[in-house]
């Protein structure tokens, strides 16, 4: 019961924040990905950095349970699937979470995205044996691993570096990149510029 209450509270907060930062607005996703407006990229980088610093810092202080970490496996399909998701994300302007939030906020095109997504997930379910036998689901680089060894996590690491300090450092690096990244990388996209810009 407590877990369902937490799902409601954290889920609603996540949905509301995604709406407020503009992550569920395909125009802002498109402008981030065509490199003309990096505000959303700065938001995402800062969020990863803040999350990382708080989590690893909290672990080092002993106030965050290391056991709550959950690391996904690395395999070739992660990259192939990433490419597919990236292409669809750019074209549609939605990823799974932001599509749900966008549909709830009244975007009708997001309902079509969700319908396509349900069919895509079903298609994966049906074609899963093919991927399984192809070998691209076999773990690489140790599978479920972090960059450094996080004390007490029981998760393997690719290096012998202390994972908590490394996490703290990388979190700070994400924050630094968020601050140094310019507002835009492409001064003007090829083609015509909107007169109102």
């Amino acid at each position: 019961m407590t877990s369902l209450l937490l799902a409601l509270v954290i889920g609603a907060a996540f949905g509301a924040v995604l709406d407020r930062v503009g992550a569920s607005n395909p125009s802002l996703i498109g402008k981030m990905l065509n490199l003309t407006n990096l505000n959303l990229a700065k938001t995402i980088l800062l969020a990863i950095g803040v999350g990382s610093v708080l989590m690893f810092g909290g672990q080092m202080l002993g106030v965050v349970d290391v056991g709550h970490m959950s690391v996904k496996s690395a395999y070739a399909g992660v990259f192939i699937g990433g490419l597919m998701l990236g292409a669809g994300w750019a074209a549609a302007g939605y990823c799974p979470g932001t599509g749900v939030v966008a549909a709830a906020s009244g975007r009708k095109d997001a309902l079509f995205f969700i319908a396509g997504g349900l069919l895509g997930a079903a298609a994966y379910m049906v074609t899963y044996p093919m991927w399984k036998s192809s070998g691209v689901l076999e773990p690489v680089l140790g599978g479920k691993v972090t960059l450094g060894a996080v004390p007490g996590s029981g998760i393997d690491a690719v290096t012998a570096l202390p994972g908590d300090s490394l996490g703290l450092l990388l979190g700070a690096a994400f924050i630094a990149v968020a601050f140094t990244l310019p507002e835009r990388l492409v001064s003007r996209p090829s083609g015509h510029r909107h007169p109102a810009e």
Partner: peptide, 23 residues
Amino acid sequence: YVVAFLGGFVVLYGARLAGGCTS
């Protein structure tokens, strides 16, 4: 709507192959 639908298909197919999505 057509592009959103097709995009949704590719995004979720890719996410399941990858074992996760943007979040």
